[in-house]
């Protein structure tokens, strides 16, 4: 799966695509059978984000930290050790960190110096959860502590999460961050099972429910981040990309997300220019591994009908043999 370069779409074909998207949503995937995603989506326009020059912490990051850092509890002291092995992750004494994702920092802005087609660009790139359309982080959570809400946000329920970090393992960008020593696992067997709570951007889920804008977007002085109805936002993102002869990231990655980055520079070039490591998401192609299981999921959904049909056919075959006096051995 490559990055989508929108400029190759002509104005006419773009309008056709836009109309198709508007009328038929995102179309029906050939393999996956998921319903059309509902709710909100957002654009992060890299032509507009300037990283808030003159401010130590970009406005979006500061607004998010101001509102949510206090909602992440401090861990118990000491944090229980893990048996037989496991790594305690404690960010409570590093709350000041704002240049990567941490349990106390849901968004950060990365600076990238890149060159494309002989032109140099200085890009400022807000990074946070992509809020995927069918997120593996939610699918594989064994406690339903992670959920794709009807408004599009993917939200971790800190009352149910025990910090196993499966969500981070299956997330293509390893977004969720663990804080050990907090959460419900402490009430059971903290040395043997669980390791805290996973935290990440929840797209200001509560504010969205009140028809308010997420604080990062509200605080952005350049309007680089906007949110709205999914179909309109996607059409808007495609239009912006066509307009600048640019690129989109997030439309198809991991089977589709609710975050569309618009950039004048291909994302593989950006990916080479940014830092990589824990809490620093990449811009590589992201395949949705759960899609490999779609055919099996279809078989699972069909299996009761197969069983019922075989049961009825087998039973009536035996009954007819009994009736005709041919025995009908079971």
């Amino acid at each position: 799966m490559g990055f989508e370069q929108v400029p190759k779409i002509t104005r006419r074909s773009f309008l056709q695509v836009s109309a198709g998207l508007t009328v038929a949503g995102l179309g029906i995937p050939r393999v996956a059978h998921a319903r059309q995603p509902r709710g909100m989506a957002s654009i992060i326009d890299l032509t507009l984000c300037d990283g808030c020059p003159g401010k130590e912490i970009p406005a979006c990051v500061a607004a998010c930290r101001n509102l949510y850092q206090k909602t992440v509890p401090d861990p118990v002291d000491p944090i229980p050790k893990l048996l037989p092995r496991g790594k305690i992750e404690d960010w409570s004494k590093k709350k000041h960190v704002y240049d990567r994702l941490t349990p106390y920092n849901f968004i950060f802005v990365e600076k990238a110096e890149v060159e494309y087609q002989g032109k140099k660009y200085t890009l400022h790139i807000p990074r946070r959860c992509m809020h995927c359309d069918n997120p593996a982080c939610a699918t594989i959570c064994p406690f339903a502590a992670n959920h794709k809400m009807k408004n599009g946000a993917v939200v971790i329920n800190d009352n149910l999460c025990v910090g196993g970090a499966k969500c981070r393992t299956v997330c293509p960008w390893a977004i969720p961050q663990r804080q050990s020593g907090v959460g419900p696992y402490l009430y059971f067997a903290p040395t043997l099972a669980g390791n805290g709570v996973m935290f990440k951007c929840h797209l200001c889920y509560d504010l969205l429910r009140e028809d308010k804008t997420p604080v990062c977007m509200e605080a952005c002085p350049t309007g680089a981040m906007i949110i709205g109805e999914r179909d309109e936002i996607l059409a808007d993102a495609l239009g912006r990309a066509v307009h600048i002869n640019g690129f989109i990231y997030g439309k198809d990655e991991n089977g589709g997300t609710s975050t569309f980055y618009v950039s004048p520079v291909p994302f593989d070039i950006i990916d080479k220019a940014i830092s990589h490591g824990a809490g620093l998401p990449h811009f590589k192609p992201a395949k949705r591994r759960m899609a490999e299981a779609s055919a099996l999921e279809t078989w699972v959904m069909a299996s009761p009908f197969i069983g019922i049909a075989a049961g009825v056919a087998g039973a009536f075959s035996i009954l007819s043999k009994r009736k005709s006096g041919k025995g009908g051995n079971e």
Binding site: H33, N134, K148, E297
Partner: peptide, 9 residues
Amino acid sequence: TYKNLIDPQ
């Protein structure tokens, strides 16, 4: 399974 395949929301 229905949620995973058909209705993630």
